[in-house]
Design a protein around this nucleic acid. Structure first.
Lengths: 345, 345
DNA sequence: GAATTTTTGATGTACGTAAATCAAAAATGC
DNA sequence: GCATTTTTGATTTACGTACATCAAAAATTC
């Protein structure tokens, strides 16, 4: 049987009240006594029964998710997952609210973070935009003892507790490696369409892709990166221009969102089978394009996993507990048309 | 605030004791009264607070894992994950024990299942071998109200509650598709090394692979399947023979374990770079081979995820609760040397 | 309609922790 | 060494549920 507070009190030779004072670091305990209790905790291997504690406290975990607005299908899927988690609030003792901010707007994001801070939640999950004011706002949250997890896109140099997202350099490398192998000996340049170089995840993917697409004897000419701001219409125009300018285009790597535009441009030009297209995120559109063959491979991060992981980590941090590292590593899914999950995801 | 048993009692106009009788279906309640209570539960949307209930009951979940013996690296990794889960027993209220049985031995497995049954656990997770006596033994467990989850390899026709493993047909298809694309226009036959056609997962992978490796203009000669029983030594001999017999061998698909043998044979023959090798399961050996280039792609199922998922499902089933479907879908990881996770897994 | 059985109510204790109160003891200042 | 402050102990209530007991009420049987 695992030890209880009573056992600690007995072991340390103090009263229950003192144990409680130490455990919840309330004032009024001499450091000698505190040490005695802490030693008893260590020798007995006591771990607080979080369920019982939450029951006694009537605790719930107020959490805030800050997500970008816009018709980015992946982000809307992410929001749907947050909503799904909200539906489980009763069981999971969470109280989740969502703040929407304009995409790629550092100032708005920093303001939202401050707004979140003023609501005094237990934790905040945020899709980061890399900018000094955002880093600063995250720092203020942490100073107030609020747990912060970056979601999907990380924030270098910040005090965030954890990043719930994939290793985007590895994702880019994987895309590059697949592109290289799928193209085999074929000639022709490869185009890269990004969303914005302002977000960390896109920059990382680009870095990884560029490094991996050429290796050994395989060298490949990469066209300059174009930015479509995750907007389908903008992406379609950009890809149309690329197709027109390069009759020998061998491949396209779309490392952001707005894949509807990519798919439309390729299919309208009738070059979907000759060009190897690799993109990110499984959405209804990209799924259909993968099945039809317009897209050759799709890298995906499971939004549901990211949201659930963020919640687990935020709760654990709020309780000062550790997490299962391996469980919180978000993996890069590679989808070919052969291993698509059954239900539309 | 979520409703409690008191709220139900008030709403239904009965006493707390009666609500308790209904909730834990104890005898001595007229069906009219039972209906009243159930309607109150429905209208208030009451969900039992599992944490509080477990606290009151002092409940723990005795679980039994039945795993195959032998030096199969994946299975040893799986066992390590079960041990890791055991270390978390206190927090998770589980009481996990492990039964080891000889691999591919249906009789021994059925005996182990009966042994597990006699210990009256809350749930059993089992790496299945497909055989009628195993199906029957699982049926007996279910009849006794014990939850059963198949792990890694499923059991067709059985009453198991859930399968914690990957879609092995899709895994095979994926391997076939990668093989086809990686080989490109290259000629030469492809060999297939299996563990045993007795286990469902191997049969499924073979089926998927055969279907996907040839598509459209790409037709590929497949050599007859050989069985290495997941034993490195046996596999090495088999692959040596294959290499000797087929000078023009283009690819090898190893759909079972024993990859050390495959790697050794390829490297001793010095044909690791000319032959496209695709295998399953990330182990220290296969990881090294992927980095060195001996293996070109590795399909993996995350043993840690499978174990944690099995535990979640068994606990939920024991409580008569539902699970988050998407969370319990085990995905097929595709590893190239570019997206290997950092720590040795 | 009396005797019996079945159903329901009322109440208390327990689980492990949190949090509060008030009294007692110990340490501190001067 | 006395007054004061700080530290500690003892005790109680609460969280939401489970489970047991005993009495009271209602339904059933003959």
């Amino acid at each position: 049987m695992r030890p209880t507070v009573h056992d600690i009190a007995a072991e340390a030779g103090v009263s229950l009240a003192t144990v409680d004072r130490v455990l919840n670091n309330r004032p009024g305990v001499r450091s000698v006594t505190r040490d005695k209790v802490e030693r008893a905790i260590a020798t007995l291997g006591y771990v607080r029964d979080v369920a019982a504690a939450n029951l006694a406290k009537g605790r719930s975990y107020p959490l805030i998710f800050i997500l970008p607005e816009g018709e980015n299908a992946f982000m809307r899927g992410l929001e749907a997952e947050v909503e799904a988690a909200r539906a489980r609030s009763a069981v999971e003792r969470t109280d989740i609210s969502i703040l929407s901010v304009p995409a790629f707007d550092a100032t708005a994001l920093a303001d939202a973070l401050d707004e979140a801070c003023s609501r005094e939640p237990a934790g905040v999950a945020v899709v980061a935009v890399e900018a000094p004011e955002v880093v600063a706002a995250v720092g203020r949250l942490r100073e107030d003892g609020i747990a912060v997890v970056t979601l999907v896109s990380d924030l270098t140099g910040s005090e965030r507790d954890h990043f719930a997202g994939v290793d985007n350099i590895a994702a880019g490398r994987t895309a590059g490696s697949l592109m290289r192998r799928f193209l085999g000996g074929r000639d022709g340049p490869v185009a890269i369409v990004a969303g914005s170089m302002l977000v960390r995840d896109h920059r990382d993917r680009l870095e990884g892709f560029s490094a991996a697409v050429s290796e050994g004897a395989d060298t490949r000419h990469l066209l300059p990166v174009v930015e479509g701001h995750d907007d389908p219409t903008e992406v379609e125009t950009l890809v149309q221009d690329l197709l027109a300018a390069h009759a020998d285009l061998a491949g396209i790597y779309s490392l952001g969102a707005g894949n509807r535009g990519l798919i439309a441009a390729l299919e309208k030009a009738g070059r979907q089978s000759e060009i190897c297209a690799i993109a990110h995120e499984l959405t209804p559109y990209s799924r259909a394009a993968l099945i039809s063959g317009t897209i050759d491979a799709l890298l995906n991060q499971d939004a549901g996993h990211e949201v659930r992981s963020a919640i687990r980590v935020l709760k654990a941090r709020a309780d000062g507990l550790s997490m299962i590292e391996a469980q919180e590593r978000i993996r890069i899914d590679i989808f070919l048309k052969d291993n698509l999950p059954v239900e539309p995801a």
